[in-house]
Design a protein around this nucleic acid. Structure first.
Length: 273
DNA sequence: CACGGATCCTGATGGC
DNA sequence: TGCCATCAGGATCCGT
């Protein structure tokens, strides 16, 4: 569920916690059989390490320590929260006890998330990271010219195309619909048939919607929570996502929805061409 | 290679 | 209230 803005919000929340409380006293694995098995030596390698920084690449979180980086993906339902004694949950798969005695829990009911250990120097060759596309917030590498060039001759729906993490990272099902609304583009348009001008609009729309969502703390539709457990606020700004049958906030037309690329997709039939 | 669909897993929701 | 079907913000894998 978490897309780039939600992961970025969790990143800054974790960074704030770990900046003042950086020592990993102990890591406890409750169950290792999530999407990809958590390596058994992870607790031993990271025990006693001091967290240097918390980064984000695509929808991955990277927690750096001198002996290795903890790589984390939240999947659909993953979250990090500070848990007190008695607040444990059956879906807490990993606890990180900090110097202060507080514990961070990685909670993920559906277990689509992942935790892995990257040894120093191995990051660029990591199987989950090496094929990732460009960061949409980086205006130097992500722009209309890039999007236009890379999509030539591609017949897939533009909505599926911008959700392809090998092209551009971080855009998931909510923000794909929202960005296409902003750009005035129907989600079913063939990616290869966008004009250069339309590609410009789409790149700008992706960046602006992601940036605004970060400022709002992400979108809480169902169970996404920030690192401390609070809800995000961007769901109130959604123009089309989860609004099937409701009136367009711009023109009043009834918002349509259908499954595209296996995911529910929303658009305004009048505003998007 | 490009594309569509199934799949992993649990929980919430809505219809009957 | 209970039961069942459907759906969920992701990513990978398999078949065509």
């Amino acid at each position: 569920m978490p897309e780039l803005p939600e992961v970025e919000t969790v990143r800054s929340g974790l960074e704030k916690i770990l900046r003042d409380d950086p020592v990993i006293e102990e890591i406890e694995l409750k169950r290792a059989d999530i999407r990809f098995p958590i390596p058994q030596d992870l607790p031993r390698v990271l025990k006693g390490q001091r967290v240097e920084r918390v980064r984000r690449r695509a929808k991955y979180l990277l927690i750096d320590t001198p002996k290795g980086t903890l790589l984390n993906h939240l999947g659909m339902t993953g979250s990090w929260r500070l848990v007190n004694a008695g607040e444990e949950d059956i879906h807490d798969h990993c606890y990180i006890r900090l110097g202060s005695g507080r514990r961070l829990a990685f909670r993920d009911p559906r277990r689509f998330g992942m935790l892995d250990l990257i040894k120093p120097g191995q990051e660029s060759s990591h199987v989950r990271l090496k094929g990732l596309g460009v960061e949409p917030l980086d205006a130097i590498s992500f722009h209309g010219e890039f999007l236009h060039a890379i999509s030539r001759k591609r017949k897939i729906a533009i909505k599926v195309f911008i959700m392809d993490q090998r092209v551009v990272v971080g855009v998931g099902n909510i923000y794909a619909s929202e960005a296409l609304f902003r750009a005035g583009l129907k989600p079913t348009r063939a990616a290869g048939r966008l004009s250069r001008h339309e590609a410009d609009r789409l790149a700008l729309a992706c960046r602006s919607v992601l940036e605004e969502a970060i400022l709002a703390g992400g979108s809480s539709i169902r169970d996404y929570r920030q690192a401390g457990g609070e809800e995000g606020g961007f769901q109130h700004a959604h123009q089309v996502y989860d609004r099937g049958g409701e009136p367009c906030r711009v023109c009043g037309a009834k918002i349509r929805s259908k499954v595209i690329g296996g995911r529910s997709t929303y658009w305004c039939p009048k505003c998007q061409k």
